[in-house]
Design a protein around this nucleic acid. Sequence first.
DNA 1: AATTTTCCTTGATATAGATCAAATCATGAC
DNA 2: GTCATGATTTGATCTATATCAAGGAAAATT
Lengths: 244, 244
Amino acid sequence: MTVDLLSRQKCSDCPIRHRAVCARCSPSELDRLEQLKTYKSFKAGDPILWRGDKLTYVASLVQGVATLGKTMEDGRTQMVGLLLPSDFIGRPGRAEIDFDVVAVTDVTLCCFQRKPFEEMIQSTPHIAQRLVEMALDELDVAREWMLLLGRKTAREKIATFIHMLVQRQHLGGVEDTKKDLVLPLTQEQIANYLGLTLETVSRQLGAMKKEGIVHFSDRRHFKVVDFPALQIATGDDSDGGMLV
Amino acid sequence: MTVDLLSRQKCSDCPIRHRAVCARCSPSELDRLEQLKTYKSFKAGDPILWRGDKLTYVASLVQGVATLGKTMEDGRTQMVGLLLPSDFIGRPGRAEIDFDVVAVTDVTLCCFQRKPFEEMIQSTPHIAQRLVEMALDELDVAREWMLLLGRKTAREKIATFIHMLVQRQHLGGVEDTKKDLVLPLTQEQIANYLGLTLETVSRQLGAMKKEGIVHFSDRRHFKVVDFPALQIATGDDSDGGMLV
DNA sequence: AATTTTCCTTGATATAGATCAAATCATGAC
DNA sequence: GTCATGATTTGATCTATATCAAGGAAAATT
């Protein structure tokens, strides 16, 4: 799901009230949700959920970064999603997940017990509708990533990854182009996200620094210096997927 | 979404009544859906929807096979989904799709105008819930495919693809193992689905024939001779992703 | 400050799968 | 039945990326 930092700002407490389920909630519905709400914290590196875990709650990510990953028996791993603040974890109507959720940085979740949450959905169609939309958004992201994994070159993968970070971290203002962006993952994690090895990630990132497309102030903070070049390097249509 | 051929059999007319939205519909709700229903046919090779098309209807695939695909400017294409009978096309709450839907064989769709369909959802929460479940099912499939595209070898990809066809075409009975299965795609299409080239698909399929894992009676019909070997070749956990 | 650990870089080499090229095989059209 | 068109097979070669290996830089821990 796309982060909508603007709407998140409306609520310093819990973004779920604005983005995930509550955009059209009445005061009484918000009250009910408020009562279900609890918080959980995880340290960087902690597993949040393992594959096969029973899902006893659904949650909204309030702070930090987490990854969704799948691992094969021999250790090969593929990340299948990246969770940033305001993203939603959970499968209403499903008891289990079949991937791991891991905290990359310290993470705070705003949790709702699954059962009462599902009961609430039954009586509030607009929440169910919102959940359909969110699931479809995620599906679009997953499919975009399938194109990346199946057909893009290493360079295009890295460029697309950076481009995505820009999209998800910008508040929309042009001013923000000047601010440093956060690279929330190690290069090994990026590799697992892009279906590459860490060496290839290092080499490609190195090349993009040399070519003056991006600039790193330190390992975790960077700026896009040449945005048009970045966009071209993604291999995507320049129109960004909008209608012709 | 997984094909559920068993439930499809309950209705020779339109599978959507049983699978996609109507499992828990009351007679009056079914009547309303009946009134919205129209059929559309497409010839093999016809585009059903182009990227950027306005979605005026949602639909259930009644007959045939269709693919969801993304194409880059330079012609590289990646399939992001395969539609078999009883699968659902459409994005309630979304006006556009950002991939192409193409009929691989002759296709019959059972269509519902999007607007009235969405209005109906508003008043029937269980349909919305069903749609959430379907979207989450699709998401699981997409993520499984991300692992395949990002980390599996050519051999594992082909084996997984065959394995998936078996899963989706079997009615569940052991007897069916004896019957021939349909390979609905050309090798080029398989390549685009697996992020490979057609030559690699041909070579790997050839090898699996030689090794006696599969047997082709003709180009489009095959049997799995050595199912355990197939399963091992997929690279997946033998427990099939069930809980530990 | 020293030490350990984790992360990143760089080089040399190997290889799976892509690419290029040509037959051969089906299948439907006429 | 012949032709034409697309689908498949097979071989030779190439190349992007993986793999193996080692050193260096930053961050965390003592």
